[in-house]
C-alpha cells in the first residue's frame, strides 16, 4: 500500500513539474531548472548517504569535474555529446569509487571532513591550473550539447526537460538499487557496519559502488549545467554545493526519494524569494535550516529503530 502511494505521489510530482515546464515563462523556468540541478545532486548524494550511510561532501567536486571535463572536451569532439557524457560519467564513477575505498573506514564526522577536503582540493586545483581552466574567472562554454534526434540543444525548455529527465532517471535508478540485493547490502552497512561485515558483505566494495553511482550522476548534472549556463567557474561547484546537497538531503530524509526532492524545490524556492530581507538573509537562511532540521521529517536514519534513542553523544 505504502509503496503504491509513494509511486502515485512521485508520478504526480513529476507530472506537475512537466506541466510547469510547459506553462512557466522562460526566465522563471531558469530558476526551477537550477533547483532541479540541485535536486539531482541531492539524489546523487542519496546513494552513499541514504543507502550506504556515508556522509559525503565531495558532491561539488564530482559535479564540477563533469562540468569542466565536458566544457574542455566538447571543442575537441564537437557533436559527440553522448560519447562525452559516457566517458565523463564512467571516469567520474571510477574516480569516486576509488576515492571512497580508503575512506570507507572513517566515521561519520571524519568522513565528512575528508570528503570536504576532496572538494577543497578540487577547487584549489582548478585555480592552480588556470591556463586550462581559466582560474577563478572561469571560462565561457560556447559549444552546444547535441543529442541524437534533437540536434543542438538551446533554450530553456529543452534544458529544463533534460534536467527533469535526469532527475527522473536518478529516482528510478535509486528505487531500483534500493530494492536490489546491492541496496539491502548497503542498508545493512548503514544500520550496523560490523554486523554487515560479519554477514559477509564486502563493505568497501558495495559502498564504493554507491559512491561511484552518486559521483557519475553528479557529473552528468554538472555537464548539463555547464552547457546550460554557458560558463563554468569554480564558485559554481564549490563546497557550497556540497553543503547544500547534504543539508537538503538531511532535511528531506536520507534514503527517501520524494522528501529530499520536495525539500529542495520548496526550500530553494522559498529562499530565492527572500531577497527583500537584504542583509538579514544569511541569518534567516540559517534559522530556517535549523528549524527544518529540528522539526522536519525524520529520514531512514531512525526507521526500524523506533522507540530506541541513543544516549546523547553515544557516538555511532
Amino acid at each position: 500500500m505504502a509503496a503504491a502511494r509513494a509511486r502515485a505521489a512521485g508520478t504526480s510530482l513529476f507530472a506537475l513539474l512537466a506541466v510547469l515546464g510547459c506553462v512557466l515563462p522562460d526566465y522563471e523556468l531558469l530558476a526551477v531548472s537550477q533547483h532541479l540541478f540541485l535536486a539531482v545532486n541531492v539524489m546523487a548524494l542519496n546513494f552513499c548517504l541514504g543507502l550506504g550511510g556515508q556522509v559525503s561532501l565531495a558532491q561539488g567536486a564530482f559535479c564540477g569535474l563533469g562540468a569542466y571535463a565536458s566544457a574542455l572536451l566538447h571543442p575537441e569532439l564537437p557533436g559527440g555529446s553522448l560519447a562525452i557524457a559516457a566517458v565523463v560519467a564512467t571516469a567520474v564513477y571510477a574516480l569516486a569509487a576509488a576515492v571512497s575505498r580508503p575512506l570507507e573506514k572513517l566515521g561519520e564526522g571524519f568522513l565528512a571532513m575528508a570528503t570536504l577536503a576532496v572538494t577543497l582540493i578540487f577547487t584549489n586545483l582548478i585555480l592552480s591550473l588556470s591556463p586550462l581552466t581559466g582560474g577563478t574567472a572561469g571560462m565561457m562554454v560556447d559549444s552546444k550539447l547535441s543529442l541524437p534526434f534533437l540536434g543542438a540543444i538551446t533554450g530553456d525548455k529543452p534544458y529544463y526537460f533534460l534536467f527533469l529527465g535526469l532527475l527522473l532517471a536518478s529516482v528510478l535508478v535509486f528505487a531500483r538499487v534500493r530494492a536490489s540485493r546491492l541496496g539491502r547490502a548497503l542498508l545493512a552497512c548503514h544500520d550496523d557496519p560490523e554486523a554487515a561485515s560479519a554477514c559477509g558483505v564486502n563493505r568497501a566494495a558495495v559502498r564504493s559502488l554507491a559512491f561511484g553511482l552518486g559521483g557519475a550522476l553528479s557529473a552528468l548534472a554538472g555537464m548539463l549545467q555547464a552547457h546550460y549556463s554557458g560558463f563554468v567557474s569554480p564558485g559554481q561547484y564549490s563546497l557550497e554545493l556540497s553543503l547544500k546537497a547534504l543539508l537538503f538531503l538531511v532535511i528531506g530524509g536520507p534514503g527517501r526519494i520524494l522528501g529530499p526532492i520536495a525539500a529542495v524545490l520548496l526550500l530553494e524556492t522559498a529562499l530565492s524569494k527572500i531577497h527583500f530581507l537584504g542583509e538579514a538573509r544569511v541569518l534567516v537562511h540559517g534559522l530556517l535550516l535549523g528549524l527544518a532540521l529540528l522539526w522536519g521529517p525524520v529520514g531512514a536514519f531512525r526507521t526500524g529503530r523506533a522507540g530506541f534513542t541513543n544516549a546523547p553523544g553515544a557516538g555511532t
Binding site: P25, Y27, A31, Q34, S229
Partner: peptide, 21 residues
C-alpha cells in the same frame, strides 16, 4: 534593481528577469 548575491548563476537569472519580465 536586483541583488545578485555575488553569485554568477543568480546574476544570470536576475538579468533574464530584468529583460524578459
Amino acid at each position: 534593481s536586483y541583488d545578485t548575491e555575488s553569485d554568477p548563476n543568480i546574476a544570470q537569472r536576475m538579468a533574464r528577469q530584468l529583460i524578459e519580465a
